[in-house]
């Protein structure tokens, strides 16, 4: 998947957030736990990304870049 596709998923959920800039999505409670689940579900079901519980951490969801880096790590590992 591409970074643009990820931005698409995120903006779908929160069109008001600038995901290219925002660095504290979890810390500042811009994303709730249920947003994280919705994003993770979309990645797993829509793009076949194999997320596990160990990946669902605030640091992986604090920014779009961090999340994309996680996805790339998982895709390379697969």
């Amino acid at each position: 998947m591409t970074f643009e596709q990820l931005l698409g998923i995120l903006s779908d959920l929160h069109p008001e957030v600038d995901f290219e800039r925002e660095q504290h999505l979890i810390d500042e409670r811009i994303l709730t736990s249920f947003d994280v689940v919705a994003i993770a579900a979309e990645l797993m079901e829509g793009y076949g990304v194999e997320l596990t519980a160990a990946d669902i951490l605030p640091e992986n969801f604090n920014s779009a870049r961090a999340l994309f880096a996680l996805i790339e790590r998982l895709e390379q590992g697969a």
Binding site: F34, V37, A40, T52, A53, A54
Partner: peptide
């Protein structure tokens, strides 16, 4: 939904 949130990511494997 809080129970689902834990179980759906294969948390229990770990």
């Amino acid at each position: 939904s809080a129970l689902s949130l834990v179980s759906r990511f294969r948390t229990f494997d770990t």
